[in-house]
Structures are given as structure tokens and as C-alpha cells.
Amino acid sequence: MVIAIPMIWLLVFFLIPFAVVFKLSLSEAAIARPPYLPIMTWDEEGILSFILNIGNYFYLLEDDLYIYAYMQSMKIALVSTLICLLVAYPMALAIARAKAGSRNLLLMLVILPFWTSFLLRVYAWIGILKTNGLLNNALLWLGLIDQPLAIMQTDLAVYIGIVYTYLPFMILPLYTSLVKQDAALLEAAADLGARPATAFFSVTLPLSFPGIAAGSLLVFIPVVGEFVIPALLGGPDTLMIGKVLWSEFFSNRDWPVASAVATVMLVVLVVPIMLLRLAQQADEVQS
């Protein structure tokens, strides 16, 4: 049956791989090809034996580095989600309240950067933020600073990069929920004597909650595992778990530990991923 192909494809190439990751996280690293020992072995008498090794998980607990990296990732993801929300809200509101003709153009302007290479847009920030980069040159020229600011290879640069790349993911759901709001509600609030600020906080903001929830989760979840941005803009002490997983795999070639790191990350992200489903369903019901 043709209609079963997507289901089977996703089962094989999306769901089952997680089981393989989990299985591998229980095996032991070895100098071999592939670099791990099998869990199941047949010994000489033909008896099947299982060797499960939860040592990788203990290893993650013992070494402060991993816990620190998880915490750091959560913190960076949380803070950048908040900044994204603060930057995106006025933009979404302005687009939703623009005239119908300019609305599509503005939406297009939000979506266009999303289509251009993510890697190259992150790369663009290196040229702006580095010591003799555009930002420092501009600030020096304006006389605002005497010495170049060290922004590259700090957490600040990582925040800028994340907010920049994930901004469209926040604007679009916010816009969808804001544009659905009935303008009559605001008029009613104004007629009843509410000032614009009051009307915003008691009408617009609460009604846009599904959009806020969806946008925040769309930013938060992928940022937790982000690799490219901390790798390019962050310094050696910007530890994010995606970067740790990458170096366990590519530099240390420790596949079992990398798998354990991925398993824990997945467990941490299951709840937000389910919340995202709920938020999107709530949004569909509302429309």
C-alpha cells in the first residue's frame, strides 16, 4: 500500500534509530570497527549472553563536565527563548496590524532569511562581532568605546547568534495567533475606557498565549541541542551539550558515551516536545 510508505519510512529511519542509540549507550567502547563491543554474544557452548553496561550513564554523572553542559544548555536555551519572545512580539504585532497589502510583504521579509543558509548567516556574525569586526569598528568610529569589545567567543555572541537564527520560528506562530484576534475586542476595551497599554495586557497578550507557547517551544527545543552556533561563535568555555556530543563522537570516537549523552538529552526534551504538540493542537482548535 502506497499510503503506508511514510509511516514505515519514519518508523525505520526516525523512531527505530532512537532504540539503536539507547542500545548502544549500554555497550562498551572499544578500539574496533565500529568502535564498541556488542551487547549480545554467543559463547563457545552456543549460549547467548547479554552484557549491559550502565557505566556510561554513571560516567556522565561522575564527570562534572556533562552535568554542567546540560545545565548550561538549558540556561542558554531558556534565556534566548525569552529574548526571542521580547524581540519577536512587537514585530509580530506590527505585522498583524499592518494593512493587508503590506502584511504579506512584511511576512515575506521575516521568512526570507529563514530560506538563506543558516550556516552562512551564523558565519556573517563572525565578521560583525570579532575584534576588528564591523560592530567594533563602528563603535570605535563613533567614539563610544576606546578599545574593541571582546564579544566573539563569549556567551554573548552565542546568545546573539541564537536569537538571530531562531527569531522567525518565534515570529510566525505569534503572528498567526495575533492576526486571528478580532479588532472589535480592542475597540470594545477602548470604549470601556481602557488605555492602549491596559487593553494590550488584558486582551491581546492573554489571547496570544497559544502562539507564545508554540513559538517558545519551537525555539527552546532545538536550541538545547544546538551545535553550530556555539561551535562558531562561542569560546572554548561555552559548553553546550550538542557540542559535547559532537566532540565525544568525532574527537574522542566514544560512540557509547555520545549515545548516552543523546539518550539523556532526548529524555529531557520529551516533555517539551509533547507540550509543543498540545500547544499546536490548542492553536488549531482556536482557529
Binding site: 519514519l10 532512537f18 539503536v20 532545538p222 551545535f227 556530543l245 526534551l269 509543543l276
Partner: peptide, 24 residues
Amino acid sequence: LLTGMVSAPLVMPEVITGLSLLLL
């Protein structure tokens, strides 16, 4: 299940997707 499998890859951190597919 299908709904979940269609929407999850959109937000799944790429390092997880990449590692899991390689191991598969």
C-alpha cells in the same frame, strides 16, 4: 504515532537525529 513522527523531526536537535541515523 504518525502525527508525532511527522512533527518531531521539525524540532529534534540535529545532533540527535544525525547520531541516531548513523548508528542505525
